[in-house]
Structure formats: structure tokens, C-alpha cells
Simulated scan of single mutants.
Amino acid sequence: MDVITDNLGLYADGLLGTLTICGLVAVAALLLGVVLAGFRVSPVPPLRAVGTVYVTLVRNCPLTIVLFAFAFGLPEVGINGSYFAFGVTGLTVYTAAFVCEAVRSGIGAVETGQAEAARSIGLTFGQSLRLVILPQAIRAVIPPLGNVGIAMVKNSAIVGAFGVGGELYSVASTLNGARGEPALPVYAGVVIGYLVIVIPAGLLVLAAEKRLRVAR
């Protein structure tokens, strides 16, 4: 345990780096996922097709392959950037597919009469989705979105393996590889770091589920 206590500052920096990555991905994936969910329930066939193809391809593709495509495939076609940018973008693209399905399930939980009533007063599809349907879908969406967020935190470790740097995975690489510290305590510290994020997040999701269950 001396390895952990002697390097608390490094672990703290890694924890902050992981939280930064997760925060950026959470915001971007939520925005992209909501747009994709709108595509999936759109009355316009081409938009539905785009949403369906995106979700089908991304959800059935391993995250590692998605990250490889961004980190090593894009530079081959002239799109260059940092591993941090590629890692955040790749994880966003991957997570957005699951956000989309969570939001779509919430939209499906809203009674169809609500959409019909919105159309009857002259609202467009976009207006009815934004002003009528999504606000009512929030209760059904929060718990599954919380689970998607927890999975995203754990997936950020795979992003770290691509040399993003500054997050918890890179702490293990630094201590175990560059400094020659024993692997077991080094990775035990990394696990503790992820638990510090995931356990409170899981408790919040459970609390939200109980609160929403009572509200219903």
C-alpha cells in the first residue's frame, strides 16, 4: 500500500483527468444521443435510416475498434489531432449510440396521445418533441442514462490505453512501466480511483430510480 500512499498526488491528478474526459464525453454524447433519438422516431424515412444505421453499427462494434479507427485511421486520410481529442471523440461516438436508445425508450414510454395533441395545435415534429414529449420522457430516461454513464466511466480506461495521458490508466503505466513499481498495488490504486467515481454514481442512479418509482 506504500505505493498508493506515496503517490497520492499522481493518483489524484489521474482521477481528475478521468473526470475531465468523462465530463466532456457525457455532455457531447448526451447532445448527440438526443439528436439521434430524434432521428430514430422521426417521420422522415431518411432520418430514421441514418439513426438506425448509426446505432446498429456502433452498438455492435467493439469500443476498441472504434478508438483504433479514430486514433490510427483518421490520420491516414489527413485528419490529424491529439490522442486526447481522438479518444474523447471516439468514446463520444460510441456512448451516443447507447444514449440514443435510452432516450428513444423514454420517448416510447410517453403516450401517443401526447404527440397527437401537439400536432393538433399546430406544433411541428421538432417542436412537439422538444416541448411536449422529451420533458415527459425525462422520468423514464434518467435511470438508464445513469447506467450508460457508469459504463462510460469504465470505458474511459480503454481510452487511456490509447495514450491519452493524464488519467487513471496512465498513472498505472507511469508507476508500473517507467518507475518499475510492483503491478499489484499500482493497479489496486487505479481500481480504487474508478470505484471512487462509479460507486457514488451508482448510488445516485439507485436513489433516482427509487424517487421516480415513488413519484409514479
Rank of each mutant, 00 (worst) to 15 (best):
T124I: 09
F125R: 02
G126H: 11
Q127V: 03
S128E: 08
S128T: 02
L129V: 00
R130V: 02
R130C: 02
R130K: 09
L131S: 12
I133K: 01
I133Y: 01
L134K: 00
L134I: 14
Q136C: 01
A137C: 05
I138M: 11
R139E: 10
V141W: 12
V141T: 15
I142A: 02
I142Y: 14
P143N: 02
P143M: 07
L145V: 05
L145T: 06
L145P: 05
G146I: 12
N147L: 10
N147P: 07
V148W: 12
G149V: 03
G149Y: 15
G149A: 08
G149H: 05
I150A: 08
M152Y: 08
M152V: 00
M152A: 03
V153I: 15
K154D: 10
K154Y: 13
K154S: 12
N155I: 07
N155W: 08
N155V: 05
A157S: 15
A157C: 10
I158H: 00
I158G: 03
A161M: 15
G163Q: 07
G163C: 10
V164Y: 04
V164D: 04
G165C: 13
G166Q: 05
E167M: 07
L168R: 01
L168G: 03
Y169D: 02
Y169H: 08
S170C: 08
V171A: 03
A172S: 14
A172T: 03
S173N: 09
N176T: 07
N176C: 09
N176Y: 11
N176A: 15
N176V: 06
N176W: 09
A178L: 11
A178M: 09
R179K: 11
R179F: 12
R179V: 02
G180N: 01
G180W: 03
E181T: 00
E181W: 01
P182E: 09
A183T: 12
L184M: 13
P185D: 03
P185F: 04
V186T: 15
V186N: 01
Y187H: 01
Y187P: 00
A188K: 11
A188N: 08
V190R: 02
I192S: 09
I192V: 15
G193V: 08
Y194F: 15
Y194G: 13
Y194R: 07
Y194V: 13
L195G: 13
L195N: 05
L195R: 04
L195E: 05
I197R: 04
I197Q: 06
I199P: 01
I199S: 00
A201P: 02
G202S: 14
L203P: 04
